[in-house]
Design a protein around this nucleic acid. Structure first.
Lengths: 126, 126
DNA sequence: AAACCATATTCTTATGACGGAATATGCTTC
DNA sequence: GAAGCATATTCCGTCATAAGAATATGGTTT
């Protein structure tokens, strides 16, 4: 059942935080590390988990890999992500993450603008 | 995180089916067996799982045990159950279960009416 | 109290998930 | 092409879960 696959993706706190951040738009891995404050392996593995199950998609830009929510989510996925969004609004961890994201955002605006031409020689995240 | 606990409950097909049926109202265990067509142990253990985590509550009536959705669900739980309901409408397994429930329902209407006085000497489920 | 019914628990086995350490990959820059 | 950076993968150990078989519990009927 596809629904079960979705819920399996949602039953880990790190993945919920990743998805919450991604709801704001595309983000590169180094951002995630800074925003969540979790080690690289952990972030990378959970993103892979989400990618294999079709919740997110990734695209390489030079040294960095940009993740974003699936372009064509199923109805079920859409509904559940919306539900998560609604719940997350009231939960401290998620709010904190978004706050930290906002702080970092300006330095890497090119990622969210999807303008690889502006990509710098070094990642200025963090 | 409470959200994670909820999603853990939702990431098993049997539990989703149980919750879908429960959305119609209180149901006794023997109904579940007939509606889902799954063995007794399986049903019982999944109901216990849901009970321990506060998604459902149970009440004994003679030989039978009646389960129902939590009386005071958290906002998060409410939101997610609503989301599940919405998704389930379009998924065959869930529709089939509800159809079978409707067939069985009349024979045990006392369960849903919550009128233990009318409880018969034997369960006529199935 | 003995038989009986519906439900729950225990035991076992198999499987999958998570985390961390170490290592590998891919791309870029010098 | 060597060094450097960001990200991914592999290899552990550990723990939670799921399923089925067998057995136990709690309540009822005779």
């Amino acid at each position: 059942m596809e629904l079960v696959k979705i819920y399996e993706c949602l039953c880990d706190p790190t993945r919920l935080r990743l998805l919450n951040v991604l709801a704001q738009g595309p983000v590169c891995v180094c951002h995630f590390q800074d925003v969540l404050g979790e080690p690289q392996v952990k972030i990378s593995k959970h993103l892979a988990y989400l990618r294999e199950r079709g919740l997110v998609e990734s695209e390489r830009q030079g040294n960095w890999v940009i993740y974003e929510l699936a372009a064509k989510p199923s109805r079920e996925l859409q509904a559940n992500l919306a539900c998560l969004q609604e719940c997350a609004q009231r939960i401290p961890v998620f709010k904190r993450d978004l706050a930290r994201l906002k702080k970092i955002e300006p330095s890497c605006a090119w990622v969210r603008a999807g303008d690889p031409g502006k990509a710098p020689g070094q990642c200025r995240c963090g």
